[in-house]
Amino acid sequence: MSEIVGNSRERARRSAAASSRWRLPELAFWGCAVAAIFLLPSRHLLLNEIAIVGLFAMSIDLILGYAGIVSLGHAAFFGVGAYAAGLLAKSGYVEPASGLLFAGAIAATVGFSASFLVIRGSDLTRLMVTLGVALVFVEVANRFESVTGGVDGLLGISMGPILGLFEFDFGGTTAYCYSLCVLFVMFLIARRIVNSPFGTSLRALKENRMRAGAIGIPTAKRIVAVYSISAGFAGIAGALLAQTTAFVSLEVLDFARSADGLLILVIGGSGYLYGGIIGSIAFALMRDALSTLTPAYWLFWMGAILVALVVVGRERIVDCAKALSLRVRGQPK
């Protein structure tokens, strides 16, 4: 009898350890991202943007894919991070890496305050609140022109070398390497989070909130926590954009950016962390292809893609796209 007990404990331990082990496709994925530095030397600006948008989509994945919260206004935190980093640099503190931490902390704090509205009410209330909060920030940024530059944007940001060592260059090589490093570090953190008991408790409350409460999980606290973390991630993505492009405009807070993030996540698939990055790559490729066809009406195509994805069923399309694109699978969805 005791032998059987020992056996099941052993199997349980092995299974628990396996869930956070690195898989070969994951290593290949990051290998490709690094190889792109050397293989695509002329596309570093684009790659930089993909990494930033990927990080932003990953931040949405944390709340949508793991905790099941639909947000229409995650650009609010992206924007807060971008303005925080931009204003910090303009005030004379030009070291990027610490600026990033600063911006992330600000965005997380803002997210923490907003989360208390998000935990109230139904799905519908949440749509209203997330949309409303984002619009408040657009309005604030627009109104306080003297600080934010209003519609002209925040001009004259000049960043110092990263950690005092690496200067930004015009080709975007430093920018991409920097963003890729940040993306990877943030991914590692996110990976830890979702594989932890905390991450499991998020999945629990997404799948069955009543049962999650009945095993003692304080659901509201969990949502507050993950919403703040996710806002911090979004803020860091925004800060990266501000630092690597030396510019912040009202566009960082735009509704379209929040919608982009959702679309990207739908393309890449949610709930396994890579979805945001893969979606971001697909998104950039599609935009490239479609805007050479009809440059002005990208918005129309974005809408069409969204409708098609949902009507046809994202599983079917995503499965195809996944098979075609990099064969990267973390945990199967």
Binding site: A259, L262, V266, Y297, F300, G303, A304, L306, V307, V310
Partner: peptide, 21 residues
């Protein structure tokens, strides 16, 4: 609700772009 939100945002974007055009 997520599907409905995404679907109807898609419709909005198409309507906005088409009207603009």
């Amino acid at each position: 609700h997520l599907d409905q939100v995404l679907f109807s945002i898609g419709i909005v974007f198409m309507a906005v772009a088409a009207t603009d055009y």
